[in-house]
Amino acid sequence: MKLNPPLPSTGATASTMGTEPRNVVLSRSPRQLAWARFTRDKKTVVAAVIVGIYVLLAIAAPILVALGVLNPYDNNQDLIANDSLPIGAFGGISWDHPFGVEPGLGRDTLSRIWFGLTFSFAIAIIGSFFAMLLGVVFGIIAGLTGGWVDYLIGRLIDLTLAFPQTLMLLALSSTVLGILTTVFFIPEGDLARAAYVILVLAVFGWVGVARVIRGQVLSIREREYIDAAKLIGASPMRRWFREVLPNLWAPILVQGTLILPAYISTEAALAYLNVSVQQPTPTLGNVLQDAVRYPVADFTYFIIPVLVLVILVVAFNLLGDGLRDALDPKGSR
């Protein structure tokens, strides 16, 4: 009998041989399989490294500010010419100010962007955490319960999606800010504004997550082990969160990686509309808000924050796509 040439990577073929040691059965966990797929994908690895650097930078910024290495708040008006633009070519780039200085005040652009990264990240991470939490909980409940509960949540999702988000955001900002400060005793100012943005991100962001999770749950709940759990009398809570949830980590991780950059750019858009954290506290959004006023007058000052944001968002999106391919290769897009 003529044997097919052995395919080392497929365990089944190797086991039929059963002779040579290098063809020993390599039982690999789903995690290892995912890792293998992940590392094979060069662009995802690069994206992951960039994201990693960004995260490290965001964590390091408050420490560097405390140590005085970064000075996001100090004016250097001696570096500003009489027309309020920085002295020197390329927005006043120098060894002390590698990204140049801000027109008018002479604050260090690198410090402001770097420290702004921390605030933007913090807002986006907390916002996406709550959006994921709401989305996962509602998604699991809708998917598992079905019936009128599913219908109700489905309509709630439709309703939320039908809201004119940006308009509501602007119209409600002062009212909701008032409620946050008077009812929830969040101190007025940046903290309340950050809380408002987080609230908005969570309230409007959970719907997308809920839909994806519900779809996953619908396929999982038909599996035999769920029926088995039901038969031996496991409580609904146990079935939802102990049996189903662990199988949802992959889509949750992917969703989280995809909504985080979206929220960072949403924060930037909100800052542009004066809703987010205010100057002088830097965020990527309000640094950008100032920079976009200078596309001609000070191109360097305009383009650097734009590039920082673009690279960040692209890297996160590539990482999210790569994670999805790795964790859920057959998954529905």
Binding site: N82, D83, L105
Partner: peptide
């Protein structure tokens, strides 16, 4: 002087 620079200078 600093305020005028921030306003737009000369």
């Amino acid at each position: 002087d600093g305020m005028i620079q921030a306003y737009g200078g000369d």
